[in-house]
Design a binder for these strands. Structure first.
Lengths: 223, 223
DNA sequence: TCCAATATAATTGTATACACTTACTCACAC
DNA sequence: GTGTGAGTAAGTGTATACAATTATATTGGA
């Protein structure tokens, strides 16, 4: 398949396939409880079964598919309830992240955060949702990384992946990009001022707001 | 290798190897930054490279090894700092779990919890640390499952794995088993009474206590 | 017609083979 | 002695082959 011909970023087929299938599960291309057949996926992608198997094994660990020995794997997608739950957990952990990140963030990371915010401003004016979404992800990842906690970063980065679809929809609702920009400004300012409480509050406010918005979307799409 | 001859529990070689290596990383058999060579592991275990590769790919997702393309994987073990961080995150999420689990726990699960507790009592008298440890793990897993949140269960179960070594050491310290038993009694009673606040408090007290105890152990072993 | 038993197909699980990339060694030039 | 480069070895990445298991279809009997 042409998608994989170039093998960008030095990634292995396994990694590319993993990311592709994860994306497809999260975006509901693979429906819940659907069966995934290795050989079929392999043929569709023009590769052998080996990297597909390895990718599926990874998805299994992420909880996105369930393996029934000798019978196959079935998709266990992210339900609205799952997203709701993940947001709740994220809120709890993001509070910890805020504290650690403010305390430990390097000047370089602070500059990154500022740069990302400024790009956000730019693309918000241009209304380029795709770019904003990507910057949004990176903004939070810089904060996670600054926490200097490998597992905290790991958990929160994972969460971001799982709620990706919802975040995308949320951002596309009328007026949300401008709101989100303001919220990110507050977060940035708090980090620049090294104000733990302000940062925590701003982050939690931001996520609660996203969650609330997401909740609305879920309701709308499921009813 | 004889370990895998019987293939217990219908598990695939991949799964068995995954669990084995994870155990070995967590218990520091594989040292940090050590390189893992597929072929070597495969030979040691008397299997082909295929299931070993698949297992390693899973470990990668868990963050226990890091893959450098075409060069190999290196062990990224759980440091004392990691364990400290995981305990902190666990505390935050366990509070959420307590609430949901009390609300949603079925009578069957409640009975399981009670049964496990009673076995704990029994083995505490017998001072069978290994059994107590296993029951301890199951006790908390019943609570996680009762939350009816797939991802909460997933995250907390993972955490338990990562801090396994520390929990084991902690439990082996003088007088800790008896303390832990009392703490579990309080948790059980709160669940039986369906008292969310009491359950939350008891759980958090229990984990903080474990954490504190673990912290002491870390200090002792690293200095 | 319906059920059971058996053959057949489909699919996963594991092993092996080959390709590709990176690391290492040793000779040769300077 | 040191640096450079070809050649070799080691190791990962991917494809294929075969074994084991499970699902499906078919046939024969009641």
């Amino acid at each position: 398949m042409d998608l994989f011909d170039q093998k960008k970023e030095n990634k292995s087929l396994t990694t590319l396939i993993f990311e592709k299938i994860r994306e497809d599960i999260i975006n509901d291309v693979y429906k819940n409880d659907e069966k995934i057949i290795e050989a079929k996926v392999a043929e569709e992608m023009g590769v052998s079964r080996t990297p597909v198997r390895e990718a599926i094994k990874q998805l299994e660990l992420d909880g996105l598919v369930e393996n029934i020995p000798n019978r196959g794997v079935i998709v266990k997608g992210v339900t609205p309830q799952d997203i709701e739950d993940i947001y709740t957990m994220r809120l709890a952990i993001e509070g910890i992240a805020a504290k650690w990140s403010v305390e430990r963030m390097s000047e370089d990371a602070l500059k990154d955060l500022k740069d990302i915010y400024e790009l956000m401003e730019f693309y918000t004016v241009k209304k380029d949702i795709e770019k904003i979404f990507e910057l949004n992800t990176r903004f939070h990842e810089v904060i996670y990384k600054a926490s200097s906690s490998r597992y905290l970063e790991h958990v929160l980065t994972d969460f971001q992946q799982f709620i990706k679809s919802t975040r995308k929809i949320s951002l596309a609702t009328e007026g949300r990009v401008e709101e989100a920009l303001k919220e990110h400004k507050k977060i940035l300012d708090a980090f620049l001022a090294k104000d733990i409480k302000a940062a925590t509050d701003a982050l939690i406010y931001h996520i609660e707001h996203s969650k609330c918005n997401a909740g609305k979307m879920v309701d709308r799409t499921t009813k």
